[in-house]
Design a protein around this nucleic acid. Structure first.
Length: 439
RNA sequence: GCCCCCAUCGUCUAGCGGCCUAGGACACUGGCCUUUCACGCCAGCAGCACGGGUUCGAAUCCCGUUGGGGGUGCCA
């Protein structure tokens, strides 16, 4: 039986922060790799942080990422007696004293407090630079230091994996741990910070740090996990996009890079796109459904219909939220013409010719994408145009845009009648716009 | 100010004294493929912050400089 035990200890301050998510992930990876336990400890040391909705948000985010914990979550709000006992003990041992109603810990004025950090090597602080810090507030509640030290000790935590922003609280916590009677020191691993383009720690104010918002944009959980794992760590074989099981078996805390890592949305999206492409059409279509349902035209779209068109955009989709804009023309009765696309391709002399030729041919042609393909190829040829050029006006007529999913497959789905209607609509717009002095 | 941490392509990283004329990925550029876009493929651009050591040999070890970041609450 293993005695290894790690913990992820978020403070419920709103939507789970990207940095917290990465910390949770690394704790999980380390715990799995070490064959140890991982517990979730909610640091809700004050009533403000104890709100059910904030706690739920943490559960929901962790659940989405599929990071699993052992046992029931530990709530610091339910352990105040433990913290109080510890403070009382320090007081009676004269390791702490009362100051303005609060209790401060006596920090030695000499010596150093140090530890060997799994990601940074030796880190040491001279005690003379550490002030007598508060362990219990005047209102009687325990501070972060106390709760942290008591819980890590009582819970038998062997590995503390957390952000580098907490590196300077470590000596304090170590002192308290000793004052608690502990003779051992847990392993520490201080993870590099995740920073923005300005190289500043990701913050709620400046940056989009809510894990939730990436989920809402249509980032897949496995892709998010995969990307987060790459922030501060890299596989030795250079294969970055891979199943979580492989990441678990390759991951080592001692391999974590100590320097801060910039959050790169482009790379996240590239990885997400790769995960999307790897999905089965059924899974992709299913995953896309919530985004479709949000559209005014989406409510009536059936699962079977969606499954027919979703594969046409699958390899063109980086995040699921891009789905509706790519598919709307399939379901809108009168999709609008994009003006830029219209002026780009419809002003040519050939455009009206292509349109009318297609409209005629379409009445007869066998209704499948291969036949439609051949039809347009031959019409284009008659006008001395390559297929790439000939499809442009037709695409704008039918989809309203100059780019989109494969045209003939799209036409096949829309059906003969709709295709004729849309070509007619485009012809009318062409006539309306025609300059008066034109022949 | 003081304390602590960090320093390989624009970005994320591999490298842990010779295999490095530094590898991969994202981004970017060019080309091929092609019904647009995308995918895929090929090619290209681009980096060991600087200065001293140590060593036969340093991206790799040590020191310093510079630069960046974090912390400095009776927040966590």
């Amino acid at each position: 039986m293993s005695n290894t035990r790690l913990r992820f200890a978020p403070a419920p301050t709103g939507s789970l922060h990207l940095g917290s998510a990465r910390t949770a992930l690394f704790n999980w990876l380390a715990a799995r790799g070490l064959g140890g336990e991982l517990i979730l400890r909610i640091e809700d040391t004050n009533a403000e942080l104890s709100k059910p909705e904030l706690i739920d948000n943490i559960y929901r985010s962790l659940d989405w990422l599929q990071i699993e914990f052992d046992g029931e979550p530990v709530r610091q709000s339910e352990r105040t007696d433990l913290y109080n006992d510890a403070v009382e003990q320090w007081l009676s041992d004269d390791l702490a004293y009362v100051d303005d109603g609060a209790v401060r810990f006596r920090v030695p004025t000499e010596g150093v407090t140090s530890w060997y950090d799994l990601v940074r090597g030796n880190v040491s602080f001279e005690n003379e630079h550490i002030e007598d810090f508060v362990v219990r507030r005047a209102d009687g509640t325990a501070t972060f230091f106390t709760a942290n030290a008591v819980d890590d000790f009582e819970l038998g935590i062997t590995h503390v994996v957390r952000g580098e922003d907490l590196i300077n609280v470590t000596p304090k916590v170590l002192m308290l741990r000793r004052a608690l009677g502990a003779s051992d020191t847990p392993e520490f691993a201080h993870l590099p910070l995740i920073v923005n383009e300005q190289r500043k720690k990701l913050s709620k104010r400046r940056d989009d740090v809510a894990l939730e918002s990436y989920r809402e944009r249509g980032v897949l959980a496995p892709a998010m996990i995969n990307y987060l794992a790459l922030l501060g760590w890299g596989p030795p074989d250079d294969i970055e996009v891979r199943p979580i099981e492989e990441i678990i078996s390759l991951f080592e805390l001692t391999d974590v890079n100590p320097s801060s890592a910039m959050f790169d949305l482009k790379k996240l999206e590239a990885i997400n796109a790769e995960y999307i492409r790897a999905m089965s059409p059924e899974d992709f279509s299913h995953a896309l459904t919530p985004w479709i349902k949000e559209e005014s035209w989406g409510a009536v779209v059936g699962a079977d219909e969606l499954l027919k068109v979703a594969p046409l955009i699958q390899e063109r989709t980086k995040v699921l939220s891009e789905g509706p804009a790519q598919l709307d023309f399939f379901f809108l009765t009168n999709p609008e013409f994009d003006e830029a696309a219209w002026t780009k391709v419809m002003r040519s002399d050939e455009a009206p010719l292509i349109l009318s030729a297609v409209k005629t041919a379409v009445a007869e042609v066998k209704w499948d994408s291969t036949a439609l393909h051949e039809m347009l190829r031959s019409i284009g040829e008659q006008h001395g145009m390559k297929l790439g050029k000939a499809q442009a006006p037709l695409r704008v007529a039918i989809t309203g845009r100059s780019v989109g999913p494969p045209l003939f497959e799209s036409m096949q789905f829309l059906g003969r009648e709709t295709v004729v209607q849309r070509i007619t609509a485009a012809q009318q717009k062409l006539d309306t716009n025609k300059p008066i002095d034109s022949p």
